[in-house]
């Protein structure tokens, strides 16, 4: 357990520290993805399994895709200059993929199906999902409904704000240049 904690915190420290020094903004976005994945691992180690899944879905499925869209919409000139791949990186990626694959195969061979079932029952027994659902529907019902309304308002507002430039792009550009 403590080894897993050290592994995840190493990934968090390394990738979030690298955001400070990396020049390419697309690389920063992918380093942020590694950080978010490791944070969800930390959540699992702290006993918050539902929150870890929510972290993966919201951050990596939502916010990071949004950030990448923002980068792609605003950095058109720079992205063309980034080389797509070269010989050295492809060799490195093949090596890494081979290592990961052999690791996975080793894990699968070492699996003990009996203990796997027992562990799964323990996990289901100690899950916090039912508790979270109960508390959301009883004690925190007002906050839950309010945050739903807030999400809908934010969705409409973001669509309104982002759609504005299609109305009068020529006027906006000519007034500032």
């Amino acid at each position: 357990m403590i080894l897993l904690f050290y592994l995840f915190s190493f990934f968090i420290v390394a990738s979030s520290g690298a955001i400070l020094f990396v020049k390419n903004i697309v690389h920063c976005a992918f380093l942020l993805m590694i950080t978010m994945l490791s944070i969800s691992g930390i959540f699992i180690l702290a006993g918050a399994d539902f929150l870890a899944i929510a972290q993966i879905m919201i951050y990596i499925g939502g916010i990071l895709i949004l950030i990448l869209f923002g980068i792609m919409l605003t950095q058109r000139n720079n992205i063309n200059q980034v080389p797509i791949s070269n010989f050295r990186t492809s060799i490195t990626s093949i090596l890494i993929i081979g290592l990961v694959f052999t690791m996975l195969i080793t894990i699968i061979f070492k699996l003990d199906s009996e203990s796997l079932i027992n562990q799964r029952q323990e996990l289901i027994a100690s899950s916090s999902i039912s508790q979270i659902g109960f508390l959301l529907m009883t004690q925190n019902l007002i906050a839950f409904e309010l945050i739903g309304i807030l999400l809908m308002v934010a969705l409409m507002g973001a669509a309104m704000i982002a759609a504005q430039f299609q109305d009068k792009p020529i006027h906006a550009n000519s007034s500032h240049e």
Binding site: I63, I67, L73, L150, A162
Partner: peptide, 17 residues
């Protein structure tokens, strides 16, 4: 988490603008 998602969506719409 949910507030962070809302904040990111609004902020990126503003960034594009």
């Amino acid at each position: 988490l949910i507030i962070a998602a809302i904040e990111a969506s609004i902020a990126l719409a503003l960034v594009v603008l």
